[in-house]
């Protein structure tokens, strides 16, 4: 009996109040997914510019991977993270912040964040997160056929 991995479109939700940041992150993700030796190739992207629209999109789409800005105009990203984890405990959430204070890192881990990226985005940071996501996703979805 061989273990196989169920592969389907990965749903990625990008939450950032600045449209340019979301566009750039999406561009970076697409570039890295297509140019590097990562397994998953097929994605659907969803975007939200504030906490309330992120919550709505999250409920509707149930994303696999979320990049969540820690500071949003209408609320804290960490509070939003807690709501996401309540709705979908196995969702892989990456907190994104302009500063890496230990308080933010600790609070993010306590609330269930899988990873933490400090801006500016670099390929190395994003690749580390994507490799981690693949390992996590494989573990979650490994089934015996």
């Amino acid at each position: 009996m061989q273990a196989k991995i169920k592969v389907r479109d990965q749903k990625i939700l990008l939450v950032d109040d600045l449209d340019y940041n979301r566009q750039l992150l999406r561009h970076n993700l697409t570039a890295l997914f297509s140019h590097n030796d990562l397994k998953y190739r097929s994605f659907s992207y969803f975007q939200a510019h504030n906490a309330s629209s992120a919550l709505l999109t999250f409920s509707q789409q149930s994303p696999d991977l979320v990049f969540l800005d820690i500071e949003l105009p209408d609320g804290s990203g960490i509070d939003l993270l807690k709501r996401f984890k309540q709705q979908k405990p196995d969702c892989f959430v990456v907190m994104v912040s302009g500063v890496s204070t230990l308080e933010n890192v600790k609070a993010s881990i306590a609330a269930g964040a899988a990873s933490f990226i400090v801006k500016p985005f670099s390929a190395d940071k994003i690749m580390a997160v994507l490799r981690q996501f693949e390992r996590f996703y494989d573990k979650q979805h490994k089934t015996s056929l």
């Binding site: 340019y20 750039l24 570039a31 890295l32 390929a123």
Partner: peptide
């Protein structure tokens, strides 16, 4: 040394920013 991957910011996006 960690293999480094470079990312380009698309020109039109940079200009918009």
């Amino acid at each position: 040394v960690s293999p480094s991957v470079s990312l380009q910011v698309p020109a039109e996006l940079k200009e918009a920013y």
